[in-house]
Design a protein around this nucleic acid. Structure first.
Length: 155
DNA sequence: GCCAACGTTGGC
DNA sequence: GCCAACGTTGGC
């Protein structure tokens, strides 16, 4: 029986019609900073223990762009990363657990870090998931939001 | 299945 | 340090 196209997962779509999505991941810079991320030339994004965040990790496609946010002490988006591969089991979790990790690699730092205050002040970002659901550590970003943020972070 | 208690996250 | 938001746990 054919599967209706509307129910197909992105995984089953040919690459040519796969829409690249945009995401944001959070890290406390004291725990794992952008500088370390660059120094290591990327990492598997482990340690996520929230089902909604995990669902987002599972939706990430290679090539998707990911904003790197420093939480708590800095509260700013500092860099741009890229999904390097589909989600894999999180090696830091118990075997057989539902937790996954996604390999990410750095693309480039933002010329200017974009602070949370600046994000909140921008009329284009009123619906930003980061603002509306501040506790979630892996969040989707809409294309127009993504463009606006890169613009704020440019030069 | 409800809900109170509790723990965690993260902004302020 | 406080507290709002929110997820989880466990008693009933």
């Amino acid at each position: 029986m054919p599967v209706p196209a509307v129910c197909m997962s992105p995984h089953s779509l040919p690459h040519s019609v796969t829409l690249l999505k945009h995401w944001l991941v959070k890290s406390e810079p004291e725990a794992y900073s952008w500088a370390t991320f660059v120094q290591e030339d990327g990492t598997a994004w482990t340690g996520v223990r929230n089902y909604q965040a995990r669902n987002n990790l599972n939706l990430m496609q290679p090539g998707d762009l990911v904003l790197f946010y420093h939480s708590v002490s800095e509260k700013a988006i500092v860099g741009l990363a890229e999904v390097a591969a589909l989600a894999i089991p999180d090696a830091t979790a118990e075997a057989g657990s539902p937790w996954v990790a996604v390999p990410l690699r750095p693309v480039q730092p933002l010329s200017r870090a974009v602070s949370l205050a600046k994000l909140k002040a921008d009329a284009r970002l009123g619906e930003l998931a980061l603002i509306r659901q501040s506790r979630l550590s892996v969040l989707p970003v809409r294309p127009e939001e993504f463009d606006a943020i890169l613009e704020l972070g440019a030069e």
